[in-house]
Every structure is written in C-alpha cells, then in structure tokens.
C-alpha cells in the first residue's frame, strides 16, 4: 500500500517547464478554453479555431486567417522579406535587435504583419494580417510599410483590401517612427478611398492602442469577432488612471458595437461568407456563395 500511494506523491515542486519550452496555444494536442471546455486541437482547427462548446474564439495568427479566408489556402505573400532595423539603438531590459531576433526565432515570422494576395470565393483580395505572437503585434516601420504596400497593390490591381488587426499598439522600441505609421497608413487608406475600393477592417482580439487610432477604425465597415478586446487605452490603464471601476464588458466587441464603432460582429465560421457578401453588395456585383 505504501508503494501505491507514493505514485501520487509529487516529487518535484511547481511548474518545471522553462519559458522557452512553453507551448503556445493552439499548438498542443488539446486546447482548454477560459471557461474550462476542452477540445482536441484538430477538431479546434476544423471549427475555425472556435471552441465548439462555448464559442470561445481562440487567438490565431496570419497562417490560420489566410487558411480560413483564401480558397484552398492558396495565396502569394508580398514583401515577405521586409525586416526591422534598429535606427534608435533602442535598449530596455533587452536590446531591440536581440528582441527582434528572439521573436523571429520563436515565431518563425519576420515581423508582426503578413500580406497575402489570393482568391476568396473565387475573387481576388489583398489581406494584411497581424501576428500578436511577434512582440505583441506591435506596429513599427515594417508593419507600416507592409500595410502601405499592401494598399498600393490593392489600388494598382483594383482589389478590395482587408486588414486584420491584432495588436497591442505602436512599437515603443521605434518611438516616434512607430507613431508616424498611424499617419502613413491612414494616408494610404485615404488613397484607397479615392480609388473607390472597399476597405474592410476586422478587429480581432486584441486590437488596442495605435491600431485603433488609425487603420483599425477606418474601414468602410469595421467588424469584429465575439468577445474581442478593442480599445485605445487598455482596461488596466483606464482603471489606474481614473480610479474608477470599469463597466461590465468594457471594451469587448459587443460593447464597442453598442457605442457605434462596429458594423457587426461575426462568428469566425461565417467570416469568409460575410466579408464577401459585403464586397458583392457594395460593389453591386452578383452575390457569390
């Protein structure tokens, strides 16, 4: 008996996994949603990375969004090799150059946004999609430039433009260079509007800081997924600064829609259909399905 009970005794204390080896969701075999619902990774992927039992929309990146939106996952990536410089020789607890290298190694990405051009329901579209895994989806010169070039491509080829935001805001390590990406991307969007091409802004969890103060809020339609966090100053900052308790559901997509900033909230499974429905309606084309 002594022997058997020792099976259940913890020999080593606490969590032993080092941070580097920590697995990012949804890469494990199983995924557990915040309400405790468990789903197999493969099933989760089949269900558009939405937990089937509670509808929780798992944070995903450009790879998954491209997979969901482009027909047969076929697309051409633009400006895939653009990478950040370190013009300010920025250093906080870590050198910016080292942080970039580490992020690239960890994520396999070059920076926090990727641009894909391909068919969605048989019609071409430019999609810029941010990756939160890359330094919190922060927007620096590379993000700004890639979005600007994505818009240029849309104008040149007369294609609709879809921006999928997922960002903590501007990249502090690029200081005011980063700030000016708000102006740069907005100027490009003004050109897109001049060209009469539709711009759809999809705000995903989270869309905060500088992104909301530029492209994320400037769509011909702004849309979101259920429960996404959307706001300029994050909830913690607002709470600390005002000393007030935040209303329930503050800065959720549902809250933001109620305040008049989103056209609709769409389940990820319906995303492709709804975006293309809007494009067909606003461009007065027959509706594809």
């Amino acid at each position: 008996m002594d022997n058997m009970s020792s099976w259940f005794k913890r020999k080593e204390k606490g969590i032993q996994t080092s941070t580097e080896q920590k697995k990012d969701t949804p890469r494990g075999l199983w995924y557990k949603s915040p309400t405790g619902k468990i789903v197999e990774s493969e099933e989760l992927a089949k269900n558009f990375y939405v937990s089937p039992e509670d509808g929780y929309h798992v944070r995903i990146g450009s790879k998954e969004y491209f997979e969901i939106l482009f027909d047969d996952n076929k697309f051409t990536e633009l400006d895939a090799k653009l990478t950040s410089k370190d013009p300010l020789k920025f250093e906080d607890t870590k050198k910016y150059v080292d942080r970039l290298k580490a992020a690239q190694k960890k994520t396999g990405l070059k920076d926090a946004v990727r641009t894909g051009v391909g068919n969605s329901l048989g019609k071409s579209i430019v999609i810029c999609c941010m990756d939160f895994n890359f330094i919190g989806g922060s927007m620096g010169s590379v993000v700004g430039e890639k979005i600007a070039r994505g818009i240029d491509h849309a104008i040149k080829k007369k294609m609709p433009f879809l921006m999928i935001s997922k960002s903590g805001g501007a990249r502090m390590m690029e200081a005011a260079l980063s700030l000016m990406q708000l102006a740069k991307t907005s100027a490009k969007l003004a050109q897109l509007a001049e060209a009469g091409l539709p711009y759809i802004s999809l705000c995903t969890d989270p869309t905060t800081g500088g992104t909301t103060a530029s492209y994320a809020m400037l769509g011909d339609i702004n849309i979101s997924e259920p429960g996404a966090l959307i706001g300029f100053a994050g909830p913690r900052i607002v709470k600390d600064f005002t000393g007030k308790d935040l209303p329930e559901g503050f800065q959720t997509a549902e809250f933001v829609k109620e305040q008049g900033f989103l056209d609709f909230i769409v389940h990820r499974g319906e995303l492709k259909k709804k975006i293309n429905l809007y494009i067909d309606l606003i461009q007065n084309n027959p509706i594809r399905s």
Binding site: M217, I221, K257, Q259, G260, F261, L262, D263, L281, I282
Partner: peptide
C-alpha cells in the same frame, strides 16, 4: 441578401434607426 450595418462611429448604435445593404 440583407446585411445590416450598425453604428454612427461616434457615440452609439441607435436601435430606432436601422440600415444596411441588400439586393
């Protein structure tokens, strides 16, 4: 084909006034 669109991009989505695209 009706796709309802919401919000004034300012303070609220007014439920007494609706709008959207349709064929």
């Amino acid at each position: 084909t009706f796709l309802e669109l919401h919000g004034d991009r300012n303070v609220r989505d007014d439920k007494a006034m609706i709008g959207g695209l349709g064929k």
